[in-house]
Design a protein around this nucleic acid. Structure first.
Lengths: 117, 117
DNA sequence: TTATCTTCTTTACAGCTTTTTCACAGGCTG
DNA sequence: CAGCCTGTGAAAAAGCTGTAAAGAAGATAA
């Protein structure tokens, strides 16, 4: 779950991102992202495990000042969640922190519940 | 689908490129390329299987800095596709990755894309 | 050299795809 | 409950790609 140098290979759980090769895979399957999606995912994975504000993400990816009315980050987080879910349904990667921003952190593999509820 | 040393014989599926002899053949039939076409095909085959930006291709083939507005790579990709299609109709070799570039990869034997939802 | 043919470069535009923006439903917090 | 947040579908805007065609440059032959 470690960060890495921009442009290098990034890894977080089952996710692997290789920005220089324009590729991201989850559990071996390609994600088929657009360039904005790949850039945002890269920014998130580079900041794995910590809560990141929309502003930080926006500036990192869009490279221009953030306006609080701009919903681009939300929209693209939605797109990423959707594509991640296609490949690994039910698994959560991007967590919302109400009022603060988002946090990328692959949900650990669900352990089978042996206890009877 | 292995890379090879510049100027050596290159092979990718049914395609064979011998840059030093100015020859490329597909399934035994010659392609009859111009020199630019052969150079671009060589650059692509040397990078088989990975997504390559227009800039990388342009610099490799034209040997000068790339301008975003230059469409030469696209035009020559079109020419190559056309000539490849004359010899092996319907087979896809050069894939477009929207917003990123191109990827050379001989399409494996037809596999129906029945997406199971 | 001139005429002619081939190749290379550039341009234009239609057809797509992606990105941005907007609106509204629903969620969260105090 | 009131008021700001967030998720998301969809329309609008922007951007990218395929390709024909025109113009420029280079090659060939007489």
């Amino acid at each position: 779950m470690e960060a890495a140098i921009e442009g290098q290979e990034l890894r977080a759980g089952e996710l692997e991102v290789r920005p220089r090769e324009f590729v991201a895979t989850v559990a071996g399957s390609p994600l088929n992202l657009t360039s904005r999606e790949l850039e945002l995912l890269t920014a998130l994975v580079e900041r794995s495990g910590r809560i990141v504000s929309r502003e930080e993400l926006y500036v990192a990816v869009w490279g221009e000042p953030y306006r609080r009315s701009d919903r681009s980050v939300d929209v693209y987080v939605g797109k990423l969640r959707q594509k991640l879910d296609e490949v690994l349904p039910g698994r959560r990667f991007i967590h919302t922190h109400f009022g603060f921003g988002y946090r990328f952190e692959p949900q650990p593999v669900e352990r089978p519940i042996t206890r009877i509820s």
